[in-house]
Amino acid sequence: MSDQAYNFAYLDEGTKRMIRRAILKGIAVPGYQVPFASREMPMPYGWGTGGVQVTAAVLTPGDVLKVIDQGADDTTNAVSIRKFFQRTAGVATTERTNEATMIQTRHRIPETPLTGDQILVYQVPIPEPMRFLEPRETETRRIHALADYGLMQVRLYEDIARHGEIATSYAYPVEVAGRYVMDPSPIPKFDNPKLDDCPAIQLFGAGREQRIYALPPYTHVRSLDFEDHPFTASKADHACAICGSGTSYLDEVITDDAGGRMFVCSDTDYCAQNAKGGA
């Protein structure tokens, strides 16, 4: 079924080995950004090249792959990456969270709890949580090395000063295992609690920025906050218009030009299962 012109999962074995080394190092030092020699991929930067390389490096022929973009299996980005691995690796694919062994995701964590048999791969645009406060890479590296994270807190302070609350609603910074501060990729902060104590391995790949980082299973992940402005995982205050779930993360969908709108689950698999009554 796979296209014989390509090595398994597109990348050559040497590259995969290099990436696996970076992944192992990332798992050994949770939350630490490991540099790696990111390759040109047959898709543009910003389309998940980091996640694709990580997936390619850990994918085995027996894996069942699920790819989601903003929670949905049927968006362009998800479809093209899924097809990419179908063609270059010939692996089985699925849209069901609980059937997948590997899940590559952009901007969401599935609603269905993950298990110890699964690997979740995140596509990361900007891995450095302090990038917009401190443009110098040399300085941010030093800050990480010395755990000198006052600056990170300044970012949250600025939020409250300007908006009355911590208005960061996605890519909300976390502290990993009491040590490194990490950008969880642009997932909504609603998903932040799922990072914590998760049985699955979580891998983060940033292709353009050439960084890989990881959360081993059951890592303590704490969202940064202030004592008097504690972290809250928020979502739109509605139920899903399709499945009726009151607990899953919702997308707002504009339905006409007259201001009509509806709220539906962003996790399409969860929504479908829930609608069937069997999630």
């Binding site: 406060l133 000198d148 994270y149 006052g150 600056l151 807190q153 300044v154 302070y157 600025e158 409250i160 000063a161 300007r162 906050d225 202030f226 004592e227 008097d228 402005h229």
Partner: peptide, 19 residues
């Protein structure tokens, strides 16, 4: 960064977590 954030940075670096 705002004036308040500039002044507060040292405190936050020192572990202050009460806005």
């Amino acid at each position: 960064v705002s004036a308040g954030g500039n002044v507060g940075e040292r405190l936050m670096a020192g572990g202050a977590r009460h806005y």
